[in-house]
């Protein structure tokens, strides 16, 4: 499903974020990504989503080598990926419902079924009653859950979450983790990064630990 083959990422200016990294994540697996800030977690996720390109090595997602992909093909890879951002990246100019609708419009989902899908996703994250609310009126935790609803509404095969619980208190963070677990249980490949390892250890899943762009011992 996701395969890194001797991947190195060097940013302009010489900073090496990832150094010769190789690993694979199977379809349907749930994996945690741990490490301090600056260890390369975000860069790794960005390479999978095609937001950054590897300086050398191959990044395979759903059998496609992103390093060799033409830019015009990138959108079609991203349509199979759900992204959850630390800063949510919600659009504040439209209500909750329209935010979640956006991915369905992009992939060309039948519009009669789309509203049902949106409500199902909102129900899943516990925001069904707030579909008409403007995002600015949501709490931080609710905004994060809105971001998750948008990431899963088109049922991607891969879900990537970059520090989804970073700004939340522990109870909220656990809620969010449970959400991700439920997606994993229906077959989605889930990759979650966090700098707080105590949240991960309870789940007994594989943890990829990074330090300065390499696997930590």
């Amino acid at each position: 499903m996701i395969q890194f083959d001797q991947v190195t990422k060097r940013y302009p200016g010489g900073n090496e974020a990832l150094k010769n990294l190789s690993f694979a994540i199977d379809s349907g697996e749930m994996v945690f990504l741990a490490g301090h800030s600056g260890a390369g977690k975000s860069t790794l996720l960005k390479l999978i989503a095609g937001i950054e390109r590897a300086t050398s090595g191959g990044v395979l997602v759903n059998g496609q080598n992103l390093s060799k992909l033409r830019p015009s093909q990138l959108p079609y890879v991203r349509q199979h990926i759900g992204l959850v951002f630390q800063d949510h990246k919600i659009l504040f100019d439209r209500p909750v419902f329209d935010n979640v609708m956006l991915p369905l419009n992009i992939i060309g989902f039948d519009r009669r079924d789309a509203a049902k899908r949106v409500r199902a996703a909102l129900d899943k994250v516990g925001l069904l009653g707030k579909e008409k609310a403007m995002p600015i009126h949501l709490s931080g935790g609710e905004q994060q859950r809105l971001c998750i609803a948008r990431a899963v509404v088109h049922r991607p095969s891969i879900l990537l979450a970059d520090e989804p619980s970073a700004n939340l208190d522990r109870a909220y963070a656990l809620d969010i983790m449970e959400l991700f677990k439920s997606f994993h249980q229906v077959g989605v490949t889930v990759l979650i990064s966090a700098h707080d390892e105590t949240l991960m250890e309870d789940y007994g899943r594989r943890i990829i630990r990074l330090r300065e762009g390499q696997f930590a011992a």
Partner: peptide, 16 residues
């Protein structure tokens, strides 16, 4: 700008 950036992240094509 924000909407365009988010749309690109979600997999919107240029023509969309």
């Amino acid at each position: 700008r924000d909407e365009i950036e988010v749309s690109k992240l979600i997999g919107a094509t240029d023509s969309f």
